[in-house]
Amino acid sequence: MSVTDLPILGLLRTRMQWHQTRQKLLSENVANADLPGFKPRDLANPELGRAKSRGAGFGTVALAQPEGASGAGLAVTSPAHITIAQAGEGPGADARRIKGFEVRPSGNGVNLEEEMMKSGDNQADYQLATSLYQKSLETLKIAIGKR
């Protein structure tokens, strides 16, 4: 077993890869802010994906589309499952609303302010993960006497 195969380092590497992928999606959202009909995308949080899939690895992520976006809905595998109202259904529902902001008449649902906030948060979380990774490696070097 090599030093880089330690579980904590693997988790941090996976987390950094997740943040890189999320940053790519967020930048695509910003780049397509003027494209008619474009729906913003984001990655599901790995912790949520792991809890839902029970036993899946830390890096298991799925593309999560905002509420009201087109795509496959939740799978109903049992008649006892509670169904979720689709966009435009239920009291006070507005089919033009996607996760708290208005969709433009062209059908574009990108809110630049929200995307930039997500991007900044993502960058800060990535920097935290890289800092933890670096400190873990430094601690290992001290422990084996290479420093």
Rank of each mutant, 00 (worst) to 15 (best):
G71P: 04
Q23W: 07
T77A: 14
G71E: 04
K118W: 03
M16A: 07
I98Y: 01
V103T: 04
L9P: 02
A31P: 03
H81Y: 13
F58L: 06
S119R: 03
G107Q: 03
K146F: 07
G57I: 07
A95C: 11
P105Q: 15
A62F: 04
R147D: 10
A44Y: 01
E138T: 15
A85L: 12
R15Y: 12
E89R: 01
G68P: 00
T14F: 06
I82T: 12
G49R: 02
L25T: 05
V103M: 02
G73S: 05
K99N: 07
Q86M: 14
A75W: 08
Q65G: 12
V110M: 02
R41S: 02
L74D: 10
Q123I: 07
P105T: 07
T77G: 11
R13F: 12
K39G: 02
V3D: 12
G109Y: 00
G73V: 09
L9V: 11
N45R: 14
S131I: 08
F58T: 03
L74S: 11
H81T: 13
R50Q: 08
S53A: 10
D5A: 09
I84K: 10
V61A: 02
A33G: 05
T14E: 06
T14N: 09
R97P: 00
S53Y: 10
R97L: 05
A44L: 06
L12R: 00
W18L: 04
M1I: 13
N108T: 01
M1C: 10
Q134N: 13
R97S: 02
S27D: 10
G68N: 04
E138V: 09
R104S: 11
T21K: 09
G88N: 06
L26A: 01
M117D: 12
K24Q: 10
G90E: 08
E115V: 01
